[in-house]
């Protein structure tokens, strides 16, 4: 292969003011982080709620949870994104359409839509993790809590969920990493996150290899950081005297 590597490309001017290509990557990284973190917040809250619902004795609530999972887990992420981005806005009430399409800048409205899409998609997966975490607990825990007079809500809040979350930290870490990687689909609807900036740099400079090497390194570093943080969290929450709940 005859390719002229040029790592200095990141420090070259983009031709816009003082800007260099590295700035594009930093701005892309910030969008990627914002999308992933906001999406993760939605996924974690909604997923925990749905996962809890799936384990409740109430059939209606459990049914809603499992219908949600069926819908959001069985349709490809890209299809979901295109539906949210291209179709849903057109069926919104007039006032909301005006707000989304005219009042907000395209960047912000795109960000909101992609965040929502990522959050709802990942919530289905978080839901299943949380559900399995709760179901992995001995039945007697629920009975013991009930026998002490705790209500169902108290039982979940104080007894079941604290244990279930400890069990599912490792799979939840995977989902967290997934949402960061999945946020790259935003590049397909014009949001200038990390992948979009990478492609743009490649096209402007013809230094595709350097650009994608940089993107790879950034995604890798961010995800390693998340893994490290989550395993520290896991250690911190470790229960003394217990292996099953992440103890030793």
């Amino acid at each position: 292969m005859n390719y002229n590597w040029d790592w200095a490309v990141f420090f070259k001017s983009t031709g816009i003011g003082e800007e260099i290509y590295l700035h594009w990557f930093m701005s892309g990284l910030l969008w990627t982080l914002a999308l992933s973190l906001c999406g993760w917040l939605i996924a974690l809250l909604l997923g925990s709620l749905l996962g809890t619902m799936r384990t409740l004795p109430n059939r209606w609530l459990a049914g809603i949870g499992s219908a949600y999972v069926s819908l959001f887990r069985n349709v490809p992420l890209l299809v979901q994104l295109f539906v949210w981005y291209f179709l849903i806005p057109d069926i919104l009430p007039e006032s909301m359409q005006t707000w989304l399409k005219q009042d907000l800048s395209p960047e912000v409205s795109g960000f909101l839509i992609v965040t929502l899409c990522l959050g709802l998609f990942t919530a289905a997966r978080v839901c299943e993790q949380v559900r399995t975490g709760i179901e992995a607990l001995p039945r007697g825990q629920r009975q013991a809590a009930a026998a002490l007079g705790l209500t169902t809500a108290q039982t979940y809040r104080r007894v079941l969920l604290p244990q279930a979350f400890r069990i599912v930290i490792p799979p939840l870490t995977s989902e967290f990493l997934n949402i960061i990687k999945n946020s790259s689909v935003a590049s397909l609807v014009g949001l200038m996150e990390l992948l979009a900036q990478t492609k743009q740099t490649g096209e402007f400079t013809a230094n595709l290899f350097e650009a994608f090497t940089m993107a790879t390194l950034i995604y890798f570093t961010v995800n390693m950081g998340v893994m490290f943080t989550m395993s520290r969290l896991e250690r911190k929450l470790r229960v003394p005297g217990l292996i099953a709940l992440g103890g030793k």
Binding site: G140, Q143, A147, G149, V159, Q163, R166, L245
Partner: peptide, 18 residues
């Protein structure tokens, strides 16, 4: 409320491990 006045002890203890 009723259960809070009726103590119960289980075969597998069922202390809350966390």
């Amino acid at each position: 409320k009723l259960r809070s006045h009726v103590g119960m002890v289980f075969q597998h203890f069922e202390l809350f491990p966390h």
